[in-house]
Design a protein around this nucleic acid. Structure first.
Lengths: 156, 156
DNA sequence: AGTGAAAAGGCTTTAAC
DNA sequence: GTTAAAGCCTTTTCACT
């Protein structure tokens, strides 16, 4: 899908505030609300826009800690991978999970209420998944950055 | 801040669709639009709601790959940490950065257009940051999960 | 606290450029 | 592709429970 500078400006505006009104967005990007609406619908249809969500403060919702877990599986068959993905999908505290190249097979980021909750999660959920050969946890001491996808034209 | 089941239901609704109207949210949670509006404003004020954003498809915006970089710094002084955080903040492709316990000091997730872009980023941006002792990159082969913070009462 | 109504404003469509 | 205008729906306030 081809996106011009107005589309990218609209996306950047939505990244900053997805609940802004169409006239606010239009004023930001230099367009009236009608073309903004048309462009947004087009991008939703095309799947460039996957949805709109809210940025919440984990600490105020009881999640004091973030843990990054590295996991290696016993074998690398498609079936094992699939089952591992399914098992992770069932654990609500798992916020991100990546299959990666390199020493470890998976990087998983989980939100935990505290260290007790972390211990419970590992014992009662993660370690019950069959096929885990090895895992290593790192507690997040500080989040240094939470960025948004940079939006600019490829040819600039 | 104390959140009751209605607050949590409103947040869950906003997680699913942050652009829903107040009447839609109200219908979902079993309230009229007025108390929904009041509760949302209260949660925005309190910082539970940090903002509203859009979920975009990175591939359609030209970012085909995700790389996770582990970085160790030369020393662990607060000043070095601060400067490293500042430098990362200036790199738009850095989407997440965590200071962690364990073998490595930082986990960084970056969005790259392709392997050439990755090489450029490392050489022209990341490796120019002073104080890096060691780093290791892992390419993401597949994203297995992208979850949202679980929202439920602590006492249930 | 919540509801419902009313005013103000914004969204979405149609039509015209 | 754009803008302008019309009708409708939503947001927001307010009075009342």
């Amino acid at each position: 899908m081809n996106l011009d500078k107005f589309d990218l400006a609209i996306l950047a505006s939505l990244q900053r505030n997805a609940r802004a009104s169409l006239s606010e967005i239009g004023a930001e990007v230099g367009l009236s609300s009608t073309p903004c609406w048309n462009r947004i619908k087009r991008m939703e249809q095309a799947g460039v826009i996957r949805g709109y969500t809210v940025d919440l403060d984990p600490a105020q919702l009881g999640y004091q800690d973030t843990v990054i877990v590295h996991v290696t599986l016993d074998d690398h068959s498609e079936q094992t991978l699939y089952e591992f993905g399914r098992a992770l999908a069932d654990i609500p505290e798992v916020l991100e999970a990546y299959l990666v190249s390199g020493d470890y097979d998976y990087y998983i980021r989980i939100a935990v209420r505290d260290t007790r909750d972390y211990e419970r999660l590992l014992r009662e959920r993660l370690y019950l998944i069959p096929g885990i050969r090895h895992s290593k946890s790192s507690f997040v001491l500080r989040q240094l950055k939470q960025g948004r996808l940079p939006l600019q034209r490829k040819d600039t």
